[in-house]
Amino acid sequence: MATTASKSRRPTISDVARRAGVSTSLVSLVLQGSPLVREPKRAAVDAAIKELGYRPSRAAATLAGGRTKTVGLIIDDYRNLWFVELLQGLQSELDKHGYHVTVLDSKAGDAPGNGAIDQLLSMRVDGIVVAMDPRDSMLEATWAPTVVAGWRDRIPEGADLIANDDSAGGRLAAGHLLELGHTRIGHLTGSGGAATHRRAGFLLRCAEAGLPVRLWGEGHGTSEEDGYQAACALMDHFPDTTAIFAANDIMAVGALAALRERGLQAPRDVSVLGYDNSPLAMSRYLDLSSVDAKSGDVGAGAAQALLARMEDPARTLLRTLIPPALAPRGTTAPLGARAGHRRRASQGPRPRPAHDL
Rank of each mutant, 00 (worst) to 15 (best):
G170E: 06
R171D: 01
G150F: 05
I162T: 11
R154K: 14
L161S: 02
G115T: 06
D77Q: 11
R152V: 15
D77T: 02
S106R: 14
S122G: 11
R124L: 11
G66T: 01
L139P: 11
K69C: 10
G109W: 04
M132W: 00
R67Q: 11
V84F: 14
R135C: 01
G169E: 05
G65W: 13
V147D: 05
V148R: 00
A168F: 09
D76G: 08
G170A: 02
A168V: 13
A131D: 06
F83T: 04
L87I: 08
P134I: 09
P134G: 11
S92K: 03
D110P: 02
P145H: 06
D110M: 10
A141V: 15
H100W: 03
V103N: 05
W143A: 13
R58P: 01
S137M: 10
I155E: 14
G170W: 08
A141N: 04
A64T: 13
L87G: 14
G66P: 00
G89R: 00
L87Q: 13
G158P: 01
D126E: 06
D95E: 15
L86I: 01
D118Y: 06
D76F: 08
L139N: 09
E157M: 05
L104D: 07
L73H: 02
G115S: 01
R135M: 11
V103K: 09
A168N: 05
K69F: 12
E93C: 08
W151M: 14
G65Q: 13
A60Q: 07
G127I: 09
P156V: 10
V129G: 07
A111T: 14
Y78P: 15
A116C: 08
D118R: 08
N164M: 12
T142F: 10
N80R: 09
L104R: 08
L172V: 02
W151F: 07
A60W: 05
A141T: 04
V129K: 02
L104E: 10
W82V: 12
P145V: 06
G169N: 11
D105E: 07
D76S: 11
G66Q: 06
G158I: 00
S167D: 13
D126H: 03
T68V: 04
K107L: 05
L90V: 08
R58C: 01
L172P: 08
A141S: 15
I74Y: 02
H100N: 15
G98Y: 10
D110H: 12
P145K: 07
Q91A: 14
T142A: 01
R135F: 03
I117C: 04
H100L: 15
K69A: 12
D153F: 01
N114V: 13
G109D: 06
G65L: 15
R154W: 03
G115P: 02
D165W: 10
I155W: 01
V148H: 07
D165M: 05
H97K: 13
D136L: 09
G169C: 00
L121H: 06
M132C: 08
T70Q: 10
G115H: 03
I128G: 11
T102E: 04
G66E: 03
G127V: 01
N80W: 04
E140V: 13
E93A: 13
G109F: 04
V125F: 07
E85K: 06
G115K: 01
W82I: 11
T62L: 13
L104C: 11
G169F: 09
N164S: 15
S137L: 09
R124H: 12
V101G: 12
A141E: 14
E140I: 01
L81R: 07
A131E: 14
P134W: 07
V147C: 04
